[in-house]
Simulated assay, not measured.
Amino acid sequence: MSKTKETPLLVASKMGTVEMVQRILKKFPIAIQDTDCNEKNILLLAVEHRQTDVYNWLIGEKYPEYVFYHVDKHGNNAVHLAAMYQKLEVWRIPGSALQLQGERKWYKYVKHTLPPQSYVRYNNKGQTPRQIFVETHAKLLSDGTQWLVTTANSFSVVAALIATVAFATSATIPGGADDNGHPHLENQPAFDVFSITSLVSLCFSVTALVFFLAILTSRCRHNDFEKDLPRKLLLGLTSLFASITAILISFCAAHFFVLRDKFRTAAIPIYGVTCIPVVFFAFNQFPLYVDLIRSYIQMLPLRSYKVFYTDSSEATSSDQKKEGKEKDD
């Protein structure tokens, strides 16, 4: 046994190797009582290091109650450790805002899956899990709020510009109107496309602007990052993308009346080229869009295994290890 009192079972729990945990406990059931130098058992280590697979397997097995009642030498139970931030991006979602969302989901998941009587409310310092969560996630909350406000502010400017153009476009009648107010081109298919898409662009751009302004005026509390703020950002991005697409189609339809009949067929490829900005915008924002959808739908975010743990029980990321080697060189 090493000087840190880490048995193979405890190491496997920290590293998230479910198969090894299962085999060790099947062959040596008494190993469930193993603890490290901080008196943390297999459940506490799995919770502390965000090993979702190991934790889910443990709570699904019928182990003695003391496994779930266990506290470390500081009086921290599983919920305390779930609330304690490890200062590493352990979730497979980029950005401080989504990392905070993952931390919030993990904390609530552990809290609700353990029996209510299986943990004490205070540790040796007199702290509740909620107090630990607020204290250790203060910087992550600040970074996530700054990123979210900056992103919403940038997108709101774009949405406002599109709303301005869409309003001016929807109020303009191509070809003018007769004395009765009927458009001269009302029987043209392109006119119908122009009328509909200009109105759609106006509606979606205003909708996107409302969502982004709602983010800017939000109080940005910890629980807001779990569902409310990601949902607003997701709906705002969707509305913005729809408004950009609609305004380009509206422009092409209005420009179609300017061309002579012999040039209209040749102009179709040019209209296709005008869609390139929408394609670029979609590809640029697609990773963020996918991450928002995935993090919003999933009950628990996916664990990133770029983070590993050394023998001294200190968490390290592969990126940090590379930076350390470069400094040594």
Score class of each variant (00 low, 15 high):
53 D>G: 11
90 V>Y: 13
107 Y>Q: 05
66 Y>F: 07
54 V>W: 00
126 G>L: 11
80 H>Q: 08
155 F>K: 10
117 Q>E: 15
172 T>H: 12
58 L>R: 02
156 S>F: 01
81 L>S: 04
158 V>M: 13
113 T>S: 14
169 T>Y: 14
93 I>Q: 14
103 E>P: 03
72 D>F: 10
71 V>F: 08
50 R>M: 05
119 Y>P: 04
174 P>I: 06
77 N>G: 06
75 G>F: 00
152 A>T: 01
87 K>D: 10
92 R>D: 15
64 P>V: 04
172 T>A: 12
170 S>P: 06
56 N>S: 06
69 Y>V: 11
85 Y>I: 03
100 L>Y: 01
130 R>A: 10
52 T>V: 10
72 D>L: 09
100 L>R: 01
71 V>L: 07
158 V>C: 13
67 V>F: 07
163 A>H: 08
101 Q>Y: 02
120 V>A: 13
167 F>D: 13
110 V>T: 04
104 R>E: 08
92 R>W: 09
131 Q>A: 08
101 Q>F: 04
132 I>C: 03
104 R>T: 05
163 A>I: 05
114 L>Q: 08
173 I>L: 01
91 W>S: 02
88 L>K: 14
72 D>Y: 08
59 I>P: 03
95 G>W: 00
109 Y>W: 14
88 L>R: 13
160 A>E: 13
114 L>F: 12
90 V>D: 11
60 G>N: 02
110 V>W: 03
80 H>R: 04
138 A>F: 15
153 N>Q: 11
88 L>Y: 11
125 K>L: 15
83 A>E: 03
124 N>K: 15
65 E>P: 02
105 K>G: 02
171 A>V: 01
152 A>N: 02
127 Q>N: 10
107 Y>E: 03
73 K>Y: 14
130 R>Q: 12
48 E>I: 04
141 L>V: 08
50 R>T: 04
102 G>F: 07
156 S>W: 00
68 F>A: 09
98 L>F: 03
114 L>R: 08
90 V>A: 13
58 L>A: 05
96 S>P: 09
166 A>K: 01
69 Y>Q: 15
114 L>E: 08
66 Y>P: 03
67 V>E: 10
95 G>I: 05
153 N>K: 13
166 A>F: 01
84 M>S: 06
117 Q>N: 15
60 G>D: 00
54 V>G: 00
59 I>A: 02
68 F>C: 08
83 A>C: 09
84 M>G: 00
138 A>E: 15
158 V>Y: 12
153 N>A: 08
109 Y>H: 15
115 P>I: 07
49 H>I: 02
122 Y>H: 13
91 W>P: 02
